[in-house]
C-alpha cells in the first residue's frame, strides 16, 4: 500500500485534479465554466510536463 502511495502514477493525477480545482476559479471571470476548467487543466498539465522535463534533465539515465 505504501509503495502504491509513493508511486507517481498514484499522486500525479491527484495533484493535477487538485490544481485544476484550485486554478479554475481564476479563469471564471473571462470564461464559461467548461472552458475555465479546461484551461486550468491545460495549465496544470503544462506544469507537469515541465516538471517531467526537469526530472529528465536531472536524472537522464532513468529515462
Amino acid at each position: 500500500m505504501m509503495t502504491r502511495l509513493l508511486h507517481i502514477r498514484f499522486w500525479l493525477p491527484l495533484l493535477i485534479v487538485a490544481g485544476t480545482l484550485v486554478l479554475a476559479p481564476l479563469f471564471r471571470s473571462a470564461q464559461p465554466p467548461l472552458q475555465s476548467y479546461a484551461l486550468a487543466l491545460l495549465l496544470c498539465c503544462t506544469a507537469a510536463i515541465s516538471v517531467y522535463l526537469f526530472a529528465v534533465i536531472a536524472q537522464p539515465e532513468k529515462f
Binding site: T46, I49, S50, L53, F54, V56, I57, P60, F63
Partner: peptide
C-alpha cells in the same frame, strides 16, 4: 538526451 530535454523545456516555457 539532456540537451534535447533542455531545448524542449526552453521552448515549452
Amino acid at each position: 538526451t539532456v540537451l534535447l530535454a533542455v531545448l524542449t523545456q526552453v521552448f515549452l516555457i
